Simulated assay, not measured.
Amino acid sequence: MPNEIIRHPRLSSDAVRLLTWALSLPDEGLEPLSKTAKRAGIGKSAFTRAKRELVAEGFVHEWRRQGDGGRWVTEQMISNVPLTAVEAAAARDGRPSVPSPAAGEPNRPAVGRSPKKTEKKNYNPPTPGPAPVVEPEPVADEVPVAAEREGEDLSTSMQSSVCTVPPPLVERGGLALAAIAHVEPRLRLSGRDVAKLAVLAGEWFQRGGGMSDLREALVSGLPEVVHSPGALVCNRLTRKMPTAPTFAELREADRRATAEPRVGGMRECAGEHTQPRLFRPVDAETLCPTCHSDAEAGVAAAINAAVRGGAAVRELLHARRAGVAA
């Protein structure tokens, strides 16, 4: 166990516990991280945060692929040193991620471990061989735009994404896509398309995007005819995805949410109540909404009474003037 993991400045205690527990498992006892977290006593929310930290720091990598029978399989890799995406893919495929070291230099230990979310899991250490040629990735505005115009199926771009979206957000994303497709005929999605794209829409909400932003990103600038609504929606969700918040920002948001008490910022109503009533003021008001409504109703009644009294006085004066003139 490297000291860098135990003393890592950006990993929480749950993330360190999850990683050390997973690395301590024998070859015949490898299991998915979710099962390891359950055995380690880590709850669902804490597991989601811990896994997000390990993915961000390069200790955990995931790939999704569709098997021969049509079922989706998630492949996980856990390492005791941080790996880039290229190094992790090379370790998974049994290829060296860097050229072989020169004679006399220490060899890098094999740290790649690529268990799948099934009972069958094994090690895939790098083997000597020629260094892989890494092709440059296309610019984000080139290939996706062309695919959007041609209506190509972009479901392959979802297979390599890390699925760390909680189920409630995935369900919310599916409902949002179904609502948008119901309003916009050009984006009519099938049930299968909604199920596939719900993870991307859920990640949109997880990164802080709102429903109005999602609708604007999908509906604005649509062509007259959309040949492949699923591919277009997948492309726009991927290209226009909000920037993910950093770990420091997430920790600060959690700290603010837990630091402020439930009664913080509340004020006691100055109206007459049997017991003191607290309310959260919007500006500088001193009455709760109920008392404020009652006060407005009393003012309105007083105004109406004054209007009626003034009308009666005017009628009396007119009658007296008429009598004097007669």
Rank of each mutant, 00 (worst) to 15 (best):
M1I: 11
R7T: 03
H8P: 14
D14H: 07
A15N: 15
V16P: 14
R17F: 04
L19K: 01
T20G: 11
E28Y: 14
G29Q: 15
L30M: 11
P32H: 09
K35V: 12
R39C: 11
G41V: 03
I42H: 11
I42L: 14
R49E: 15
A50N: 07
E57V: 06
E57N: 09
E57R: 09
G58W: 02
F59S: 03
R65M: 15
Q66V: 11
Q66D: 10
G69L: 12
R71P: 02
R71E: 10
V73H: 11
M77E: 13
V81A: 14
P82K: 01
L83G: 01
V86R: 02
A89G: 05
G94W: 06
G94Q: 00
P96K: 09
P101G: 04
A103K: 00
E105Y: 15
R108N: 12
A110P: 07
A110K: 10
V111C: 09
P115M: 01
P115A: 04
K120P: 08
K121H: 05
N122A: 10
N124E: 03
G129H: 05
P130H: 08
A131M: 04
V133K: 00
P136K: 03
P138Y: 00
P138T: 06
A140S: 06
D141V: 03
R149C: 01
R149I: 06
L154K: 04
L154E: 04
M158L: 13
Q159L: 15
S160G: 12
T164I: 15
V165Y: 04
P166V: 15
P166A: 15
R172W: 06
L175W: 11
A179E: 12
A179R: 15
H182N: 12
E184C: 14
P185D: 08
R186Q: 12
R192A: 08
V199N: 10
L200W: 07
G202M: 07
E203Q: 08
W204G: 00
F205C: 06
R207G: 01
R207E: 02
M211V: 14
D213Y: 05
A217Y: 13
G221S: 04
P223Q: 01
V226G: 02
C234W: 11
R236E: 01
R239V: 02
K240H: 05
K240Q: 01
T243R: 03
A244G: 00
T246K: 00
F247G: 14
A248C: 09
A248S: 11
L250V: 13
R251C: 13
A253P: 01
D254V: 13
A259F: 03
E260C: 03
R262G: 02
V263G: 05
G265Q: 01
R267K: 09
C269L: 04
C269I: 01
T274I: 15
L287Y: 00
L287P: 00
L287M: 07
C288D: 00
C288S: 02
T290Q: 00
C291F: 02
D294V: 08
A295E: 06
A297N: 06
A297Q: 08
V299P: 03
A301G: 12
I303T: 07
I303S: 09
N304H: 10
A311L: 04
R314S: 08
H318T: 13
G323Q: 14
V324I: 14
V324N: 15
A326N: 14
